[in-house]
């Protein structure tokens, strides 16, 4: 059963040490895969935690804390991707084209495959499979209809399967 937070609980400022310990690494990895740039990802995570701190009193507990924070991180990354600064650096078409991963990121097989997905497929696979979010939450977060998320997820899986063949697909 979902427990809503009381006013007193909402008024309290969050324990940033706990939040960073609990979600920091996961968010940074999510942002790295989302933005394909380690430095920008660190900036995005920083912005996310600052927003979490500022807005924590508005968190009502209707979703899990992780989902709420992930939504803030995703919105931050999406703003980064839409920004003129990012577009000038990655090229206007870069949002949808397959790109080589920047060298400062790890050279892992799965993350390379994930980063080669177009943005709209990359984000759903990350949210559904890495962050374990429900499709309904993803749809609400991205502002697209639920069938769209489902379709994108199916397509993203097919793309990943093509890229990874039998590497990590054990079912």
């Amino acid at each position: 059963m979902q427990m809503f937070l009381t006013d007193t609980e909402r008024a309290a400022k969050p324990d940033m040490d706990r939040l960073m310990a609990e979600y920091g690494a996961g968010l940074l990895r999510l942002c790295c895969l989302y933005l394909k740039d380690r430095a920008q990802a660190e900036d995005a995570v920083q912005d996310t935690f600052v927003k979490v701190y500022e807005k924590y009193d508005t968190f009502e507990g209707r979703s899990s804390e992780k989902t709420w924070i992930t939504a803030i991180a995703v919105n931050t990354c999406r703003n980064y991707l839409r920004s003129p600064w990012h577009r000038r650096n990655v090229g206007e078409q870069g949002l949808y084209l397959v790109e080589q991963a920047p060298p400062e990121l790890p050279d892992g097989t799965v993350i390379q495959a994930v980063m080669k997905l177009p943005t709209k497929y990359r984000e759903v696979i990350l949210l559904a499979y890495y962050q374990d979010m429900k499709l309904r939450d993803i749809a609400a977060m991205l502002g697209v209809p639920l069938p769209t998320v489902s379709t994108r997820l199916k397509r993203a899986r097919r793309m990943l399967e093509d890229a990874l063949k039998e590497w990590y697909y054990d079912e």
Partner: peptide, 30 residues
């Protein structure tokens, strides 16, 4: 695709990707 295996593999490949102490200090500072 197995979600758990996918997640574990991502974490394994990105094991070095963590918030640096400097970045955490800055977040605290902000």
């Amino acid at each position: 695709m197995n979600k758990e295996a996918f997640r574990r593999q991502i974490d394994r490949e990105m094991a070095d990707v963590r918030l640096s102490p400097e970045r955490m200090r800055r977040i605290h500072s902000l």
